[in-house]
Design a protein around this nucleic acid. Structure first.
Length: 291
DNA sequence: TGTCAGGTCCTCA
DNA sequence: TGAGGACCTGAC
């Protein structure tokens, strides 16, 4: 199988990237090993020492697609230094999730994924997305016996009925997705919408006008779909985290946003990922310990 | 077996 | 303008 080896100059922990809630189409296959699909490709990622091994790709595809997708060109060390300044808790969270990167994912896929994510849990979100792609997407290819499909286009989704989507088991979100697809078409399509939002000062403010998108989902799409690193999504885990980290009342969303803007600034989204991953992992581990 | 999940929508003051 | 209930489904 063709593959490409990238020397990352440090040992990357893939869990930090793929188990922090920003993506739903990657599966852990072993220690520091994931298989997944993005941007119409399927690959396996493995880490051995300082080498990131990407299977089912070649040098050209790595440079054209994966280097950017994995955000390998961005200087996270600089961000860590800025965020760590006078913040011991953040320093601890950064140490814990040191390999975190904000992936450069497909905008439309992020819209769909985070609408599905609302009031939902990660195993079911992943299942819903997989069934949605199988039902309405186009085949991408097969990898080790498993077939992969693309996210359905707005055009395809807009023509679907709730009956068509019943096997996907989206719950009440099926109606949101169909309406959202129609709204995106009315905006001139995905590319036109993405271009418009990319130029917007506050994309989240525009995104909440769409069906199924509230403040939290809008901030996730802004961060993960538009790569606007200042975006600071606040969900239930972040409320708890901001309480433990900085003593915020869990209902004080505005206070948290103001704090993020002032202290994390242009890197709010990366700070959010460090805090989120630290809290989620420690929370989960504590729960598992109790069992 | 019941709770709750990385929220949003809708209704009603 | 915002508070509060309803909402699908299935992990745990």
């Amino acid at each position: 199988m063709k593959s490409y080896i990238y020397n990352s100059k440090e040992k990357i922990e893939l869990d930090h990237i793929f188990d922090c809630g920003q993506c739903f189409r990657w599966d852990k296959k072993g220690e520091n090993e994931y298989v997944g699909t993005a941007l119409g490709k399927i690959v396996r990622l493995k880490v051995e020492d300082e080498n990131l091994i990407i299977e089912n790709t070649d040098e050209k595809e790595f440079k054209d697609i994966w280097f950017n997708y994995l955000d390998l060109g961005f200087d996270y060390e600089k961000v860590k230094a800025v965020l760590s300044n006078n913040d011991e808790k953040m320093k601890e969270a950064i140490k814990f999730g040191h390999s975190i990167k904000i992936l450069n994912q497909d905008f439309w896929e992020m819209m769909i994924s985070f609408v599905i994510s609302q009031n939902n849990n990660i195993p079911r979100i992943k299942g819903s997305i997989r069934r949605l792609t199988e039902a309405l997407g186009e085949p991408i290819g097969e990898f080790e016996g498993e077939k992969y499909y693309s996210m359905p286009t707005p055009e395809r989704l807009s023509k679907a009925t709730v009956e068509d989507l019943a096997p996907v088991r989206l719950g009440y979100r099926d109606k949101y997705l169909i309406r959202l697809a129609n709204e995106v078409i009315n905006e001139g399509g995905v590319d036109a919408l993405k271009d418009r939002l990319a130029k917007a000062k506050n994309p989240a403010k525009e995104l909440v006008k769409f069906t199924g998108i509230g403040p939290k989902v809008a901030n996730c799409i802004t961060l993960f779909g538009l790569h606007r690193l200042e975006s600071f999504p606040i969900d239930v885990w972040m409320r708890r985290a901001m309480n433990t980290f900085y003593g915020f009342n869990e209902d004080d969303l505005k206070g948290m946003q103001d704090y993020a803007k002032e202290h994390f600034g242009e890197f709010g989204g990366i700070a959010q990922q460090y805090i989120f991953y630290y809290t989620l992992r420690n929370g989960k581990d504590q729960n598992e310990d109790q069992k």
